[in-house]
């Protein structure tokens, strides 16, 4: 079951939603206007579009997300790895680490994450 596709503008919207959810749609519209510059009509249109795609649900004028931030990020990375690194995660990491020198703290954190991965069945 693939994570639904989210475009760049919609991603920014989702950032706001993840921050404030659950949130009344009117409140959400106000926030979008302040931060994104969207009109009310645009916000409602986007809410409708994303609910059809299964990204969020709008019940009784309260909006909650159905997909989490981590899921979206992971999905993005999958697509990137698939597209640019032929599906090879190590290649991706290698490319990534070549670009920047990792600090000692970062290396430690990564090690811990890999350990966590191993633990999972």
């Amino acid at each position: 079951m693939g994570t639904p596709k989210i475009f760049d503008s919609e991603y920014r919207f989702c950032l706001i939603l993840w921050e404030c959810e659950p949130v009344r749609s009117t409140e959400l519209a106000k926030l979008c206007h302040e931060r994104l510059g969207w009109s009310k009509a645009t916000t409602y249109t986007v809410i409708k579009r994303l609910s059809e795609r299964g990204v969020l649900k709008n019940e009784d004028a309260v909006v909650t997300s159905l997909v989490s931030r981590e899921e979206v990020q992971a999905s993005e990375i999958d697509e990137l790895v698939e597209r640019s690194f032929d599906g090879s995660m190590p290649a991706f990491i290698a490319a990534f680490t070549k670009r920047r020198d990792l600090s000692a703290d970062e290396i430690a954190e990564i090690r811990r994450m890999i350990d966590d991965c191993e633990v999972k069945p």
Binding site: S9, E10, L36, A41, T45
Partner: peptide, 14 residues
């Protein structure tokens, strides 16, 4: 352009 987002003086759209 209705769903373009404002970002630091310019508007970004996908």
């Amino acid at each position: 352009l209705r769903d373009a987002v404002r970002d630091d003086g310019v508007w970004l759209s996908d």
